[in-house]
Design a protein around this nucleic acid. Structure first.
Lengths: 336, 336
DNA sequence: TTTATTAACGGAAACGTTTGAGAAACACTG
DNA sequence: CAGTGTTTCTCAAACGTTTCCGTTAATAAA
């Protein structure tokens, strides 16, 4: 690989001058800068990322902390989509991304935060299903810039999906369709689950809809089997709800199967809604009525905020940014 | 961060000795090694990855080149699953992964290979839908260890799914069920598509099944809309096939919808099979009969091979490793 | 006792950058 | 013309490692 030194000997200047010219410093004449930049290009020069990082403590690497209890990781569609847009936006600014996690390296255990230090990432984005682990706390309390997704910590920037208003929107639609007997299967205890439940309650109050405790179940996100079981249980009640809120689109598939297996049909006998707006949901028939999370914006915003935090530490304030999703009308809710 | 120097002053030895002790060199006494290792642990020492890389030209970073024409990236389930197991296996050996691609950084365009050089990755895994791009060739012809997934280059290790025998297995099952009139929608031109088609032809020959040209269509992988259209077209034929081979499970959803929209039912009126064995396929009703690709093994094998190539360049030979999948019987094929 | 060998450790250069402190040259001010 | 600035460039140290080579002391061989 061609180094600064190679360019400097070719052009008869010092290494320092080449470095400054390429980095746009002021104390180098326009003529020599132009000459140096040109030969650098001709010789196919690229800065050595390691050497640069060693000097500047800036790696142009962003750490990505993705963790879900099921261990689906990248297979989790929400994560995958957010990561995809995060990555795209980060690369636009010259950053690459590195997955960080706790791991054993050379017999020595390394926490996630230690992993970050080891790799010297410039910033970290956290998107976990569980934000209460020691690993998360260690990162949050560390001195590396952090943005979190769908969870709010004090003094840290957070990008959150509008889970509360999204769920309100969904319920209002269902109520508009004339439904009054509504069941709700929520995902596992988490900030997201609480926000959605809050939106559900709030909207029910507003619309004068009674929320029956026996129709309020706690299950898992992204777990069709679990939702299948819970839906089955729900359908054993004396009085059936006319509409079921599924934890999310993917889990909903299990719920829909349970309804079908019970000899009922969607939406004629019973209606259902999901959450997320994943691609699959629109391939079902009927299409699932759901609320799409704006994953492209969430990921891109997270990247922009994180990079701003890194590059302008003094002028960037930690804040909570809410990203609105979009209601998606399918055919899974019957108009009564 | 605590450095080798910090440890050396604390213990009253030279930096060189600390380095050697921690790296398990022979010329340091057992007593001092033990002492140094202990205090290193106490002081929370971790090697500085940049400095080490600068000296050794080893970053313990593996480059991942994922590219599909649709730009789905991580959202592509096959890629996501392979990457997941690749990552897990790599981390076990102390490697992290970096996504590599061609990009513009600081006004200067960087090819994928240049990106690799810039980041000094130790090895590269390529999993693309299109292996004929200049970017791929540049990487293949470069001097960094490479393994490819589902595509074979001369003198490069490849991990390939058993697309040919997998498809044979699938056709044999369908033939066993009594089907003789079979349609086949293949994915876009690629090594994978060719292998599968070869398996299909071969098995048809063996079973004495006639392959009619009007039942042989070329479409896209992972594109339900496209498969919907093609299936619709297929169903307009005078004589209908009794079974349709869809490009893959995900695309199959579109195909199944087309069948349903034509007023036909699966498998009573027409049978269908997919390929891949994605989770979603088993949530359909009827469950899709398909052939599961062993993504965990593919990813893990790729990682192990790549690391072996890096760490034992002399004893590791480039080879083609075939990973077998598994036939998955659903209910989408009618027994005639 | 002398010599050769080995074990344990230190010195110092090197990897490719960045950057503050200075130096040389020149132009301006009063 | 002395002093002051400005522009443009070089020097050299530093970042944290690794590794070759040299040194010392101790031990084994002769």
């Amino acid at each position: 690989m061609v180094s600064l030194k190679d360019i400097s000997v070719r052009c008869g200047v010092s290494v320092a001058t080449v470095s400054k010219a390429l980095n746009g410093h002021k104390d180098v004449s326009e003529a020599t800068r132009e000459r140096l930049v040109r030969t650098a290009r001709e010789m196919g020069y690229f800065p050595n990322a390691q050497a640069r990082a060693l000097k500047t403590n800036r790696t142009y690497n962003l750490g990505v902390m993705f963790l879900d209890e099921a261990g689906r990781g990248l297979t989790h569609e929400f994560f995958a989509k957010v990561l995809n847009s995060f990555k795209t936006e980060a690369e636009l600014a010259g950053y690459d991304i590195t997955f960080i996690s706790n791991k054993d390296i050379g017999g020595r255990h390394m926490s996630t935060y230690e992993h970050c230090k080891y790799r010297s990432v410039d910033g970290i984005v956290i998107a976990c299903t569980d934000f209460t682990t020691p690993d998360v706390f260690e990162v949050i309390n560390g001195d590396i810039p952090v943005v979190t997704i769908d969870h709010i910590f004090d003094c840290r920037t957070a990008i959150v999906s509008n889970n509360e208003t999204g769920m309100e929107r969904l319920l209002n639609y269902v109520a508009d369709c004339g439904h009054k007997k509504i069941a709700y299967i929520q995902g596992k205890k988490s900030a997201v689950a609480e926000k959605r439940l809050a939106g559900f309650w709030k909207a029910c109050m507003n619309r004068g809809i009674e929320v029956r405790p026996e129709w309020l179940l706690v299950g898992d996100y992204c777990n069709p089997d679990n939702t299948y079981q819970l839906t089955k249980k729900l359908l054993k009640n004396k009085e059936l709800p006319t509409c079921i809120f599924m934890p999310d689109d993917y889990a909903a598939i299990g719920g829909l199967n349970a309804i079908k297996d019970a000899g009922l049909s969607v939406p004629d006998d019973i209606s259902a809604v999901g959450y997320d707006g994943i691609a699959y949901s629109q391939l079902l028939s009927p299409k699932l009525t759901t609320y799409t999370q704006d994953t492209p914006t969430i990921g891109a915003t997270a990247a922009r905020q994180l990079i701003s935090l890194i590059e302008n530490p003094q002028t960037t304030f930690t804040e909570v940014i809410t990203v609105d999703g979009q209601f998606l009308e399918g055919g899974s809710v019957k108009k009564l």
